[in-house]
Design a protein around this nucleic acid. Structure first.
Length: 159
DNA sequence: TTGTGTTTTACGACCTC
DNA sequence: GAGGTCGTAAAACACAA
């Protein structure tokens, strides 16, 4: 009860407590030292738990962002393919009669929203260059198999 | 009963004021 | 020098097998 009120003891209080408990003042002092140590380690443990939870949430969020990026990359590739086909068809039907300029193609206006920010095709392409396909593949395979490794497992793969 | 893990008590080494 | 933290040994305790 005394420890709840005061983490450290003044000498008069220590002497008083020792007298009340029928103990040596040294025992009271040592008890408070040990009690402070336990209290401190408990606080550290709680702080660690909070940090770990925050960290795990960030890892999961990162996985989702990477998955979203890969989906965009795939969509980009499909769009590019359609664009090339359309341009080839246009060139074939024009038959050298002078068609429209390639730069006027509607495909050049394709954009994507990532994290609330709008990117043009080239920007998305550049960002996608840096993403980890390995991490994404493992993450999606785990989800598909119903054997999601948990945050720790995913984290291990990233680290 | 016993092996094992956890908690409590006590101490020495070192640090700070 | 008094009193603090830190690391650790030993005793006490809890509990599953």
């Amino acid at each position: 009860m005394s420890f709840r009120k005061e983490r450290k003891l003044e000498t008069p209080r220590k002497v008083q407590l020792a007298a009340e408990l029928g103990l040596d003042t040294k025992q009271v002092a040592v008890w408070f030292q040990n009690r402070r140590a336990r209290y401190k380690s408990k606080l550290i443990e709680e702080e660690f738990s909070k940090l770990r939870a925050a960290h795990d949430a960030v890892v999961v969020h990162n996985c989702r962002l990477e998955a979203e990026l890969l989906r965009l990359k795939e969509r980009l590739a499909e769009t590019e393919e359609e664009k090339n086909k359309a341009m080839a068809a246009a060139a074939a039907t024009a038959g050298g009669g002078g068609g429209s300029s390639p730069s006027s193609s509607s495909f050049s206006t394709v954009t994507a929203m990532v994290g609330g920010q709008q990117f043009g095709m080239e920007e998305v392409e550049t960002d996608l260059t840096y993403m980890s396909e390995y991490a994404y593949t493992n993450y999606m395979m785990d989800l598909a198999a119903g054997g999601y490794l948990g945050v720790g497992g995913v984290y291990d793969q990233f680290s």
